[in-house]
Computed example of a mutant assay.
Amino acid sequence: MTNVLIAYFSASGVTKNLAEKIANDNDYDIFEIVPEEIYTPEDLDWTNKQSRSTIEMNDKSFRPPISESCDVGEYETVVIGFPVWWYTAPTIINTFIESVDLTGKKIKIFCTSGGSGVDKCVNDLKATYPELNFTKGIRFTGNVSNAKEWIEQDL
């Protein structure tokens, strides 16, 4: 086991590909955050006000159930990756954070997005979980060659 866990949620495969590359290239452990009910393309239609993702994102208290959680006890750093939804982290990320004990962990956030940055995502998570140690995040658009340097800085 390494001191770094890459935990990620991916709805379309983009974040999954990057998370797997980061983990494989750097020998980090990896955990996929899987919803109990997988998102369909219709669920992800952000232009439809009745789509599942739109409804979830409009209710900040909603926590989509995840199929399983993991033990993060042995990790010093937990890297959480996800696609940006509505300029922030999908609510399933809150489900994951609330299902594990991240107290005392260094938490690094990476996002995938065609245009939205990571700063609002990190700031929203810091506001929701002020007791946790979120560090500066990063947005990946395909090239993850600097991932190890970013993850391991300040370790």
Score class of each variant (00 low, 15 high):
residue 3 N to F: 01
residue 3 N to R: 13
residue 6 I to R: 06
residue 6 I to P: 00
residue 7 A to V: 06
residue 9 F to A: 03
residue 12 S to K: 13
residue 13 G to A: 09
residue 15 T to Q: 03
residue 21 K to Q: 15
residue 21 K to E: 10
residue 21 K to V: 09
residue 23 A to E: 06
residue 24 N to Y: 10
residue 24 N to A: 13
residue 24 N to K: 15
residue 26 N to A: 03
residue 26 N to P: 04
residue 29 D to Y: 04
residue 29 D to C: 03
residue 29 D to F: 04
residue 30 I to K: 04
residue 32 E to N: 04
residue 33 I to Q: 00
residue 33 I to N: 02
residue 34 V to R: 14
residue 35 P to C: 08
residue 35 P to Q: 11
residue 37 E to G: 07
residue 38 I to E: 14
residue 40 T to N: 10
residue 42 E to M: 12
residue 42 E to Q: 15
residue 43 D to K: 09
residue 44 L to V: 08
residue 48 N to Y: 12
residue 48 N to Q: 08
residue 57 M to W: 09
residue 60 K to V: 14
residue 60 K to E: 15
residue 64 P to C: 05
residue 64 P to M: 04
residue 65 P to M: 10
residue 65 P to Q: 14
residue 65 P to E: 13
residue 66 I to P: 01
residue 67 S to K: 13
residue 70 C to Q: 12
residue 71 D to A: 08
residue 71 D to M: 11
residue 74 E to W: 07
residue 75 Y to D: 00
residue 77 T to Q: 11
residue 83 P to Y: 09
residue 84 V to G: 00
residue 85 W to S: 02
residue 87 Y to L: 14
residue 91 T to Y: 04
residue 92 I to T: 03
residue 93 I to S: 00
residue 93 I to R: 01
residue 94 N to K: 14
residue 94 N to F: 15
residue 97 I to R: 01
residue 99 S to C: 08
residue 101 D to H: 05
residue 101 D to C: 07
residue 102 L to A: 07
residue 102 L to E: 05
residue 104 G to N: 14
residue 105 K to R: 12
residue 105 K to Q: 09
residue 106 K to A: 09
residue 106 K to D: 14
residue 107 I to G: 03
residue 109 I to V: 15
residue 110 F to H: 02
residue 111 C to H: 05
residue 111 C to V: 15
residue 112 T to G: 02
residue 112 T to Y: 02
residue 115 G to V: 00
residue 115 G to D: 00
residue 120 K to D: 15
residue 126 K to R: 15
residue 127 A to M: 08
residue 129 Y to N: 08
residue 132 L to P: 09
residue 134 F to H: 04
residue 136 K to G: 10
residue 136 K to F: 10
residue 137 G to I: 08
residue 140 F to I: 00
residue 140 F to K: 01
residue 143 N to W: 02
residue 143 N to G: 05
residue 145 S to C: 08
residue 146 N to Y: 11
residue 147 A to G: 06
residue 148 K to D: 10
residue 149 E to S: 13
residue 151 I to K: 02
residue 153 Q to N: 15
residue 154 D to A: 12
residue 155 L to E: 13
